[in-house]
Design a protein around this nucleic acid. Sequence first.
RNA 1: AGGGAUGUGGCCAAGUGGUUAAGGCACCGGUUUUUGGGUCCGGCACUCGCAGGUUCGAGUCCUGCCAUCCCUGCCA
Length: 563
Amino acid sequence: MANEMNTAENKPVSNFIRTIIDKDLESNKYDGRVHTRFPPEPNGYLHIGHAKSICLNFGVSIDYNGLCNLRFDDTNPVKEDVEYVDSIQEDVKWLGFDWDNRMFYASDYFDQLFEHAISLIKKGKAYVDDLTAEEIRQYRGNLKEPGQESPFRNRSIEENLQLFMEMKEGKYEDGSKVLRAKIDMASPNLNMRDPVVYRIKNANHHRTGDKWCIYPMYDFTHCISDSIEHITHSLCTLEFEDHRPLYDWFLIELDLYRPQQIEFARLNLSYTVLSKRKLLQLVQEKHVSGWDDPRMPTISGIRRRGYTSESLRTFTDKIGVAKADGIVELALLESCIREDLNKRANRIMGVLNPLKVTITNYPEGETDWLDAINNPEDESAGTRKVPFTKELYIEKEDFMENPPKKFFRLAPGREVRLRYGFFVTCDDVIKDDNGEVIELKCSYDPASRGGNSPDGRKVKATLHWVSAQHAIKCEVRQYENLFSIENPNKVEEGKTFLDNLNPDSLNVVDGYLEPAVKEGKVGDKYQFERIGYFAIDRDSTEDNIVFNRTVTLKDTWKKIQNR
RNA sequence: AGGGAUGUGGCCAAGUGGUUAAGGCACCGGUUUUUGGGUCCGGCACUCGCAGGUUCGAGUCCUGCCAUCCCUGCCA
């Protein structure tokens, strides 16, 4: 659990929500309680935007010694599924949070909600409307003009009661009637123009089955659910600001305990789509392999990609919480995962694009097992043995026949270090008929075993390498941004967000890894030296280890070259 | 007769009228290094959307303007 985070040097960043809570605590508004909730609708998998909300709600409750509930907002049975409620629980737990025994469903409150609707009718504050959906839309008016009252608005309380009971009993077809709150058809806030409270849906609910054929709307359900659970601070995103008057209206009219709704800006990430509707479309139309495709911004996708929950929590801490909407750069997320993995991922050498190197003066058939440090950032990670033989692979891009000025790696006649191995000098370049370099003949300095020359001479580069004979061939999946433009939500006329999909978002190559990877298990994270961080994927089999690339290392030499 | 919000460096973001406007990411120098990674050190907003005003003093208060986002589901 993440509660030891509240130390002096790792104190939560102040934000407007904490300021509000501090004031409420000072005025004893809620008897010193802080009680939040994370209320997803189980209509899709959670994504990194939800992680912000989860960390906020659970984080605030931990910091103030309060409570945070998990509540499924399951009022629309046609969109919801148990698959989603299961995945949501798994993801929240993985992120490191615990709701104890406080997992609720809005559907737990369907009976109470129904009774509250009856109360509203009895107070003359709600009525059954026979208008069609289309008519209701027309009567609502628009942004500039007030709405008109429905001809059914002034039915008697008795008639409304009778009709609403009949709605519940299933006497009417979907869409033929709704229950509406009687507020103000001329309100400048469209949400207050007699919002629908209950609609008829003859649909099977994933928890209540066929018990109900009428289902309450979000606005009616959410405030009452918060009230029932004695929530103090109901944190939600900015688009609900206009709903707050309605949130308050229901609770005031029903004379119920009233939490306060506080809105914050939702997360936007560059190159990333964070809309459940669009993510669902990506899954349904098979643009990705599923909700947990490592390219997806879902928590399960990010997890499979190799991100740690710690890095996600760090990220949500760093982006802060405010009311101004903006787009956070992906580079910030990447820096969080690099920072974490740099400390915990064991290093390993792997060649993704091999170039054969023959050490001409090395004895045939001999293997020298060299010591390699598992993690220079963590001495306790220990060492391992790496086999060195006459035939090796190095990265193709680590050799250039005609090196530019700032290129320090292997070139004809040049000496470099093979990490944890020997100094080698390139003596000869072998090419195929097309003039492409296919092999290097090098000589090694036996005295430089381990990577240092006793005469003290220096080399300007250290390369990663692997013994051709011992290399384990693995499937390496490299991911680029799923979307090619910085803000894939901004769509040009006549196009959809799918037009921004990056066709090169997945690139699968054979990697040649040190034998040590054979000991790896699914989920294990490694740094391939000088390349990036990779995690073993669950698609791995007995004889094929599959790696997902989590993130690349910072690659500054490319920038140097571009100058 | 529209309403609700928001504007602080390239990106987030502290700042709640009073010393030279935190911090992170990015970027740029340099240091160290058996990863062109990492580390460490240094640099990076005479100015807070713009224009006025109040005040001894304004990013913080007032007025006006501009820009952006959200709202016309029987979705949440």
